[in-house]
Structure formats: structure tokens, C-alpha cells
Design a protein around this nucleic acid. Structure first.
Lengths: 243, 243
DNA sequence: GCAAAAGTGTTTAGGTTACACCCATGG
DNA sequence: CCATGGGTGTAACCTAAACACTTTTGC
């Protein structure tokens, strides 16, 4: 179903899309106690990039971002938010784009629409790592998770976009209580704490963390317990639907 | 000096500007214990709008916003921040634009660049009311302060833009300590408190407010005192340069 | 039994609220 | 001298930090 979009993304005129405007999404996942982001890889070029896309003529900007998120992960109803517009003229850098196109046997004209200056609206998304199905787009070879503290060199200003997204996530984590979106439906308090510790990059006090979370009233204790380790079985918690 | 821009803003092709992309600025001021915003007025049309503008081909988006702010107020080095991108397709509403143009004896073609769909980047600015010199742009008749709780009907989605800007201001007021930008260089604690009360729309406890502000360490007490009322002379405070 | 992780109780510290009191000033 | 607004002191209150203790489980 996304074939139709993808064909359009590669068309020669850029017709059907708002000109000069793009979306870049920083898709965060959490696995093995590591924060990860989803990157597109271009195998024959050594280039890495954030998933992104363009806005269709008859589409809301936020809708376009959801479409990008869906087509890279297969997920809907996911936490997704704008965080910044990247609009410096200095970000205009056509070399990597030319490389990518040429690696696909396509030599673009110098005023090909993709080589024009773009202003990009940055979005960040929080997804359940186990549920996302990374899917490359029409001009990339693969789409994979990369650890946030072990990122490859990224094209254009995509590294700054990730940094700014992480900052936003850090400042909103407490305030908006959005961490759950990175975990599976049921999780232990330990899972949640190590998620927080990873995002904020600092140790938290176990007892204090537990009480703060419980007193916030948004966690529901699921009666079931865990099976596994050589220690007391932790409760499982769930984000309460009733806000 | 802004003549050059303004001529361009009215040109027929939109040449020199990024297509389909605009800036809208919510410029906040504070006077007589009222929060105000700067609006452009179109006298022969009954239309009101936020100051806005376009981004020049060779200009950063944030630069463009500073240029708009400068050309409407004469102010530089002002608090100015992005807060949201308004990109719904439903905001495309050409009727008011046609009205404005026709009121200026200009009947645009239906595919005039100004009548195309625009995505707008919302900025909010905090200015010293006494220092700003409201200045209309080339297509408006005047530029004036309006009380936030007594706004006229605004064109397109500008009312929603203001509402979202106010929300952003409210949530950032404590966190980022940006209130000072709305006052003159020196102010009393009472001034600051009534500013906070106006923005947050609730009464604050005097003693608690004073201590919180003083303990934040960003206020410097200026030795001079106030002349005036039938009561103890309050200290004047100043925002500390040393962050 | 012991180590490890989980859950909770208790004490302490720091910040906020509420209330009180004194200060300065103009009428 | 008193009403008014400004500044600070004090105690009550609440939340968070620090620490301790108990529970559960696999080895």
C-alpha cells in the first residue's frame, strides 16, 4: 500500500508534494537497556540517514509524519510529536543525495527537486521495540536500529536532529510521562527505571523512583507476576488507559 | 531598509522566498497588568492578523523570524522561539487574502503564489512593551497592541496560533524563567508577580513568590528604590546578566 | 543459607504554604 | 496614626532523599 507513495517519492518532478518542505522522524526504541534509533542505510554509499518524507499536497503535516512512521515501522497509534524546525540555509548539502541517487544508477539534473534547499520539520516517536518492523523506503537498502551511543556518521545535519530530539525527550520525560510508550504493554518497575536511567543518563534511587511512579497514579498493577530470576518476583505494571 | 523586503513581499511571483512556507509570530507585551499581542489591521476589510512573513531563499528560518520581529517592532536581541508548525491542509483559506488584496486594488490570479497552501512555522516573542514601536507591513494599514482577553476575530487559524503560543508561554514560564523579557530592565517584585499572575491566570502567594524568585538566583537587587505610592518603597530588581 | 532484586517503612532534609509581624510612606 | 503595599520570620506541611529492613527466588 505504501508502494504508491514510494513511487511518488522517487518521481522526477516532486509533483504531488509540498515543495521545499520535508519531515525527519527520530524513532526511538528501547532494547537491552539501550536507547536506539531507526536509521536508513545506503549500502553502496556508506551513508546513513533518518527516516523522512514529504508532505502530500492534500495531507496535513502531522498526517504525513504518521504516514512516514507507519511505513517505516508498520505501527499506528504511536506517540509522535513535533519538536523543532530545522531551517538553516547551511543544512543544504546536495553531495550525499547525489551519491545516493547515483548509487541507484540515476544521475539527477542539478535542479532536480530533491537537490533544492529543504526545510525539515523534526518529529520524534516512541515505539515498542518488539512491535516495530523496520522497513526501508524506496531509495534505501535497509532500515535498522542503531544504539544511540554508537551511531554511525549521519548525512547532512541528521546527527544534530537526533541530539535535539533526545534533549526534548529528556525534558518531557517527567513532565509529560511518556516513557511507557517505549516499553511493552506490561513491564516491571525495574524495566521502567532502567529506561529512565538510560534516557536521562544518570542513576536514580530505586525507592524514590518507585514511590514517585506509583503516586503519579498512572500505573496499574497487574496481578500476574514474573517468572525468572533468582530473586523476588516483581509485579507487572501497565499504563492506565483512563489517563 | 525593510522597503526592499516589503516590495518583494508584494511581488507577483513570490520569487526570492521559499515557496509554501510562512512564519507567524505571536508577539507578547505586558502593560497595565494586561497581556497583549501585536496584530496587523486591515482597515477596509475588518480583518486582523498576526505579523508574519516569508523566508528568503538565502536566509535561515530563525533569521527570517528575527527579521519579521524587527520590522514590526524595531527590536533586536529579543526572546524569540519556535513553538509549533501549523500544517493542516484545512488552514488553507484564500478568502481573506483575496479580500485584503482587493481592498488594495489588486485582483490576484487564482494561482497567485500568496493564494497557495502555506505551512506556517509559529514563533512567539516576549518584548518590552515600552520599547516596541509597532509598525505595519506593506499590505496592512496599521499594527497595534490588543489585549489577549479581548481579541477581535482573526483571519484563518491565527486565533488557534495565539492560543497555542499562550499555552507554550505558560508551561515554559517557570521552567525557562523567561518572564523578565516582558518587563523593563528594572522592575519591582510586585510587577513580576502580577505578570506571572496574568500569564498563568491565577493568584499567587506573595511571600512564596518572592522567596522562590530570590532563591532562583537570577535576580539582582538594584540599590535604588522606587518613588510613589503610600507605602514602603519596594526594591527594584534586574535580570542578572551572568545567567 | 546466601546473593540478588523487589517492595515497603522510617527518618531526614529541603522546599512550599500559611500566617504573622515589622517596615516605610502618603494621606 | 492608619491604611497600604513591601519584606521577612516562623511553624506546619509535603515531597524527595537516604537508609534500613523484609520478602521472594534460584543456586
Amino acid at each position: 500500500m505504501s508502494n504508491e507513495f514510494e513511487k511518488q517519492e522517487m518521481n522526477v518532478t516532486g509533483e504531488g508534494f509540498l515543495p521545499g518542505l520535508a519531515i525527519d522522524t527520530v524513532i526511538f526504541g528501547f532494547h537491552d537497556n539501550k536507547l536506539k534509533v531507526l536509521l536508513l542505510t545506503y549500502k553502496n554509499t556508506g551513508l546513513f540517514a533518518l527516516p523522512g518524507g514529504f508532505i502530500r499536497i492534500n495531507e496535513d503535516v502531522n498526517e504525513a509524519a504518521r504516514r512516514v512512521l507507519y511505513s517505516r515501522t508498520g505501527l499506528i497509534d504511536i506517540f509522535l510529536d513535533q519538536f523543532y524546525v530545522f531551517g538553516d540555509k547551511s543544512r543544504h548539502d546536495i553531495a550525499p543525495l547525489k551519491t545516493i541517487m547515483q548509487a541507484r544508477e540515476f544521475t539527477p539534473d542539478d535542479n532536480h527537486w530533491l537537490l533544492k534547499r529543504f526545510v525539515s520539520i523534526g518529529f520524534y516517536a516512541l515505539v515498542d521495540f518488539t512491535k516495530a518492523i523496520p522497513t526501508p523506503d524506496s531509495i534505501s537498502d535497509s532500515c535498522d536500529w542503531f544504539e544511540l551511543d554508537d551511531l554511525p556518521v549521519l548525512m547532512q545535519d541528521h546527527r544534530q536532529i537526533i541530539d535535539k530530539a533526545l534533549q526534548t525527550l529528556q525534558t518531557n520525560l517527567d513532565h509529560k510521562l511518556i516513557g511507557f510508550n517505549l516499553l511493552s504493554e506490561n513491564f516491571t518497575m525495574g524495566d521502567l527505571q532502567s529506561l529512565y536511567e538510560t534516557i536521562l543518563n544518570k542513576k536514580l534511587i530505586r525507592a524514590a523512583f518507585q514511590r514517585k511512579m506509583l503516586s503519579s497514579g498512572i500505573l496499574e498493577r497487574v496481578a500476574k507476576k514474573w517468572t525468572g530470576g533468582a530473586h523476588k518476583a516483581p509485579y507487572l505494571y501497565r499504563f492506565m488507559a483512563g489517563r
